[in-house]
């Protein structure tokens, strides 16, 4: 009896989570999964089972492949720069070289990009980056540009620009988490390092980074999954254009669902996104297991 309760104890702690996820997450996901094998689901009362035809159609679509490339570009750059900026700002804000009050104020300023809904971030940057916007004005005044730069409507600049916006919008999440992580590092480790004659960069390299490693890994993995799905920001700034240069898997999927009303194909595309994310998650779980052992 006692043994059984002991075995069940971890599940007791997990039960609210499992209940919620099973009903409100797994169930709809399973439905979407079944949609991906049907033809014209939602629009037809009696959809037809088509096997993997939807998967073949999506995977051979040139726009899908471009969207895949764009999404990887967008996601990987976002994750890398989120990490760099988040770590840099967290380190700066953690320093004891400035007064606590100044630190507190800076922290609030640095977290600003995070407190706005994606819709507002998108239209704010559209406003600032438009040919008649303030960014173009400043660039022209300083002499860095002559004439308006079409950040969001040129084929060369649109993808880097939306990536830049996403980097701006996302780094505070890393910063806050890393700030908490930094403050959890025991000061003895630094003292020991200093006694061993390590300088600042060395302490960062050999004490800070290894200590933060688990947090960084989790953050990067989660950020990857979230960024792959980023929709609102792209949709509201470029709509995937011009000419598909900012087409992401998310906008591609959305158009399939609500522009072409191909819910079967949209579900297929969603499942391919899921598969990509699973791959990353698997890598992460492996890493964790390695760390545990």
């Amino acid at each position: 009896m006692h043994k059984v309760t002991k075995k069940l104890a971890p599940f007791a702690y997990l039960s609210p989570t499992l209940l919620l996820l099973a009903v409100l997450s797994l169930l709809p996901i399973a439905m979407v999964f079944s949609y991906s094998f049907l033809n014209n689901v939602v629009m037809e009362k009696n959809p037809v089972f088509v096997g993997i035809a939807n998967y073949i159609e999506i995977l051979t679509d040139a726009v899908f492949l471009q969207a895949l490339y764009n999404t990887l570009y967008f996601t990987i750059l976002s994750v890398v720069f989120h990490l760099i900026l988040g770590l840099a700002f967290a380190t700066l804000l953690n320093t004891k070289l400035i007064s606590p009050l100044a630190r507190a104020l800076f922290r609030v300023v640095y977290i600003l990009p995070w407190v706005f809904t994606a819709t507002i971030i998108a239209i704010l940057w559209r406003l600032m980056l438009s040919p008649n916007g303030v960014v173009n004005y400043m660039l022209n005044e300083v002499g860095l540009a002559s004439g308006p730069v079409e950040f969001l409507s040129s084929r060369q600049l649109a993808l880097p620009t939306v990536t830049f916006i996403n980097i701006w919008a996302g780094y505070p999440f890393y910063m806050v988490s890393l700030l908490a992580g930094l403050q959890g590092i025991p000061s003895e480790l630094y003292e020991a390092g200093r006694i061993d004659g390590a300088n600042g960069p060395q302490l960062f390299r050999f004490v800070t980074l290894p200590q933060l490693r688990p947090i960084i890994l989790s953050l990067a993995m989660l950020d990857f999954i979230w960024t792959v799905q980023q929709f609102t920001l792209i949709w509201m700034t470029t709509g995937g254009g011009p000419i598909h240069v900012t087409e992401m898997l998310s906008t591609f999927t959305y158009k399939l669902a609500f522009s072409s009303y191909e819910f079967g194909l949209a579900s297929t595309s969603a499942f391919i996104i899921l598969a990509i994310c699973m791959f990353v998650a698997l890598f992460y779980v492996r890493q964790q297991r390695a760390a545990d052992e």
Binding site: S25, L26, I225, S250, T253, Y254, A257, I273, I276
Partner: peptide
């Protein structure tokens, strides 16, 4: 981890 990997729009 993976339940959050399905795009909400779908």
């Amino acid at each position: 981890i993976s339940v959050q990997a399905v795009p909400p729009i779908t």
